[in-house]
């Protein structure tokens, strides 16, 4: 008699813990043929609020780690993904939208992208920051600082590569993130959460929610504690997000959902720069 397998209950990943939505709501994930795969938590505004709170608390500690340490932690994440790459590929292919070999290629690119950003942690400052030769007896320097909590809406396609491409540059500099995974296939993001749980990334730095943009847009764009937003939304939703972001003067970047994440330009120093503040300090030179 064949063994009955244990199915996994997908959960959101918030504050280093696996949670169901506080609402108890789920939505079914189905494959291309409409066949049921599993239930996915349908996160709410309140879930978002809770995630922002833990992200705010975790961010300061993450940002204060040495750049070298952040690089090691992100590289370690790459190692873990490499070891479980087949599992990630299966999760991408689970809905049948892409073939397993396409999924494997996406995983490989995702891992390389993690390594790319891991390498930036202790270098972006050297390229973006600078000393300024002011006309006076002052030592003047500009350094970058993370903006704080950043909200992210992923694109629906490329559910792993898209998420990695948006989130990694943000956390590279010490920001913390609340991300809404692809709603057509949140499964790779959920699996990534399980890898994060055993990585050295402090709980709360990267919080992965699942659900619907339409429902969460208000909170993702208007929550005042969120200082930046990178949202794959278009049309009216994009405009609505920007209007909402104005009230707290958020650093908001909206982009169309059909980004080609495989392009070379999908990884860039300037994706890191988007969520940095420049701070300039003046100090007299005297004795």
């Amino acid at each position: 008699m064949p063994r009955i397998s244990i199915t996994k209950t997908p959960k959101a990943y918030v504050g280093g813990k696996f949670i169901r939505s506080e609402s108890g709501r789920v939505f079914p994930l189905t494959n291309a043929n409409g066949e049921f795969i599993c239930n996915i938590p349908q996160c709410t505004r309140k879930d978002t609020r809770n995630a922002v709170e833990v992200a705010g608390k975790a961010g300061a500690g993450w940002a204060s780690k040495t750049a070298y340490n952040r690089g090691q932690i992100l590289y370690r994440l790459g190692e873990m993904m490499e070891a479980r790459s087949e599992e990630l590929a299966q999760s991408i292919a689970i809905t049948g939208e892409v073939s397993l070999s396409q999924a494997r290629a996406e995983v490989a690119l995702s891992i390389d992208r993690v390594v790319y950003y891991a390498g930036w942690t202790d270098k972006y400052e050297q390229v973006l920051g600078n000393t300024n030769p002011v006309a006076g007896p002052f030592f003047n320097f500009s350094v970058t600082e993370p903006v704080g909590v950043v909200s992210v809406f992923c694109s629906d396609h490329a559910p792993l590569l898209g998420l990695i491409s948006q989130v990694l540059p943000i956390i590279t500099s010490g920001n913390s993130v609340v991300v809404l995974a692809s709603s057509t296939n949140p499964y790779p993001a959920i699996l990534l959460g399980e890898m994060l749980a055993t990585s050295d990334l402090p709980g709360g730095v990267l919080n992965i929610l699942s659900g619907y943009k339409e429902e969460l847009l208000d909170t993702f764009a208007s929550h005042e504690h969120i200082r930046g937003s990178d949202l794959c939304v278009s049309g009216d939703l994009a405009k609505q997000a920007e209007v909402l972001a104005a009230e707290s003067v958020k650093r908001i970047h909206v982009r169309e959902s059909d980004v080609d994440w495989t392009k070379d330009t999908a990884q860039s120093l300037y994706a890191i720069r988007n969520f940095l503040e420049f701070k300039t300090t003046w100090h007299p030179i005297g004795a």
Partner: peptide, 22 residues
């Protein structure tokens, strides 16, 4: 965005100026 240590209201074309938050 700007921190003046033992000085204040100093400006220079080479020195970036601008804010955080609101």
């Amino acid at each position: 965005g700007v921190v003046w240590a033992n000085t204040y209201n100093k400006f220079d074309p080479t020195s970036p100026f601008g804010g955080y938050k609101e």
